[in-house]
Nucleic acid binder design. Structure first.
Lengths: 160, 160
DNA sequence: GTGATTGCAAAGCGTTTGCACCGTA
DNA sequence: TACGGTGCAAACGCTTTGCAATCAC
């Protein structure tokens, strides 16, 4: 089990390095976006990132958020999160193949290893003749913190 | 392994009954949409359904497609399919919890049972303290037909 | 200096809503 | 006949594109 908070502090700098070494320039707009995403343990959508980032860099444009997200995703630094209602958000990602578990109360996300999926994939592949190239697995539920909060009568449900 | 082509012929009539018994009226617009979806073994998006359905019922409006989809989904007759690029489509669904396997060449979809997922869910749940309420699993790959076509030099790749 | 990057405005796309008319029950 | 359903047009939200100004290198 890997928690997204791991080395969150260094992430901002790592991402900057990664952008620079890929030939991209380090601008204030990009820094503002990176700051927000690198520090969040929730998946955020473009507008949320825009709003948070503007607090520190008010002249930021929404377009720059989208363009920065594009590059971060291309460099595999962030990962798209799909929600059942279709809207998309973004979260800091790790290397390798990871699956997401999303809390419906606080929207915090945790990664988990899904290696146990291999037998299922092999089984299904053999039975169907399908060549399975990629899989997509997400869990939705309530994280331990929100479970505790609920039982200790201290609901933190977001009003979104 | 359950193939979507199973009893596809009867499906149109079943869906009509289901709509009627739920208090909805049977209109030409709804029939046109249902005909298309019930006969397709691909997941179709709203525009595709609109285009196909208009062939048989030219006065159909796109809005009616959306409104019919809403009702069919509410009655669990169809199921939303999420694509990696974020766009949504719809496919005839079965009762119970089923997972999708989508061919990237012909876009045909097959359902598979994902019961083997339970141990993984329990394992992850125990380790993380997460209460997992719902999961979402989709496979992407190449179906047996398209595999064969490719090897027999008879590619049927769609030009979408 | 120069070319990548920016923010604005506007266009684009898929979806939803308001509304008067229509057709099913 | 009544009211659920329709299609049109327009609004909507999110995302992308065109463009001149700007800024990192």
């Amino acid at each position: 089990m890997v928690n997204v908070s791991t080395s969150r502090e260094k992430r901002t700098l790592n991402w900057m390095d990664c952008l620079r070494s890929s030939g991209y320039r380090l601008t204030e707009a990009r820094q503002a976006v990176i700051d927000v995403l690198a520090k969040s343990d929730r998946a955020l959508n473009a507008t949320e990132i825009f709003d948070f980032a503007r607090e520190g860099y008010p002249s930021l444009g929404l377009v720059s958020v989208y363009r920065t997200l594009e590059k971060l995703e291309e460099l595999n630094l962030i990962q798209k999160v799909h929600h059942p209602d279709g809207c998309q958000s973004y979260i800091a990602g790790f290397t390798g193949h990871q699956h997401l578990m999303i809390c419906r109360v606080c929207e915090q996300a945790e990664f988990f290893e899904g290696d146990d999926l291999t037998p299922l994939i092999e089984h299904v592949s053999r039975e169907s003749g399908f060549t399975i190239q990629e899989h997509w697995l997400q869990f939705f539920g309530i994280c331990s913190e929100c479970n505790n909060s609920a039982t200790s009568n201290n609901l933190r449900k977001k009003s979104s």
